[in-house]
């Protein structure tokens, strides 16, 4: 695998057009594709839908990258596109085909009295709902740390954020998710 390119280099290469733009785009997909796939898969729950959404996301990235001003990290910008695209795509797909997206992404371990009466599908849905209520930065950090199991150091490089800030964000994200799930189950 080639050395990863930083955000600035990717954008510069892309704006040069031609073969350089192709190279930049391939670098994006190579460096971020798997994480974007995981983010979508958590919401869409099956490969076919995830594939369609990811394709739409990457087309939008390709079409709009020249307008990206670099106010945030490239991944943050793509995370936002991915989240919006996933939600909108699934809304339309549910209306169109009534697609069922309740394949679980979590397994329950016995021992927590509140979780005992729930199913894996239910808790998976609640987790995704809870993530959608989080502020964007917390949601990104939670996704990369919890689902992608990335190290704080790598996340820090990816998002241009200090490790301390990431730890704080992850802690708050977990707390809010827990509160959301418990409040929903206790209703």
């Amino acid at each position: 695998m080639a050395n990863p390119l930083d955000d600035k280099t990717i954008i510069e290469l892309f704006n040069q057009g031609g073969a350089n733009a192709d190279h930049a785009f391939k670098a994006i997909v190579n460096q971020y594709g798997e994480q974007l796939y995981g983010q979508i898969r958590g919401i869409a729950r099956n490969h076919e839908l995830t594939n369609d959404i990811l394709q739409n996301v990457l087309i939008k990235v390709y079409q709009n990258l020249s307008k990206f001003k670099g106010d945030s990290a490239l991944y943050t910008w793509m995370y936002r596109i991915t989240r919006n695209e996933s939600i909108n795509f699934l809304k339309k797909e549910k209306l169109r085909t009534g697609v069922d997206i309740d394949a679980p992404i979590l397994e329950i371990i016995a021992g927590h009295d509140v979780l005992d009466g729930t199913t894996s599908e239910m808790i998976s849905n609640l987790l995704q709902e809870a993530i959608l209520t989080l502020p964007e930065k917390q949601a990104i950090v939670f996704h990369l740390k919890y689902f992608e199991e990335m190290k704080y150091k790598d996340i820090s490089q990816k998002l241009n954020v200090s490790e301390g800030g990431l730890k704080a964000n992850f802690h708050h994200a977990k707390q809010k998710i827990q509160e959301y799930i418990l409040s929903q189950l206790n209703q």
């Binding site: 995981g38 490969h47 397994e107 371990i109 021992g111 927590h112 808790i123 919890y146 689902f147 977990k174």
Partner: peptide, 14 residues
Amino acid sequence: DIFNYFNKKDSDNP
């Protein structure tokens, strides 16, 4: 900690 009572399911990433 609720997170100690569920595991992530491995999805077959491409």
